[in-house]
Amino acid sequence: MAMGWFDYFKQSKPNSAKVAKERLQIVIAHERLDRNGPEYLPQLRRDIMEVIRKYVAITDEQVNVQFEKGADYDVLELNIALPERER
């Protein structure tokens, strides 16, 4: 491997601040949903996951439960990304 002495000086450390920001954005978005929605929301999400897993193998990230407060009514939005079909 040709890693010259020059590379030693400009070796880029992984930008860990960027990683921190991305991780924070994801975890905080989740926590905000939980606290803005009704108290049953986290349990509802777990139950939904369990039901879907009976039929399809999915991970936590593939299920998105959103709760939005509206003026007249609230909306519960459920988004499930199914795994890619095997060809």
Partner: peptide, 14 residues
Amino acid sequence: ASGEMLGMEDILEI
């Protein structure tokens, strides 16, 4: 500046 600490803008955005 060296990318090892969250910047002020990042925190504000979050």
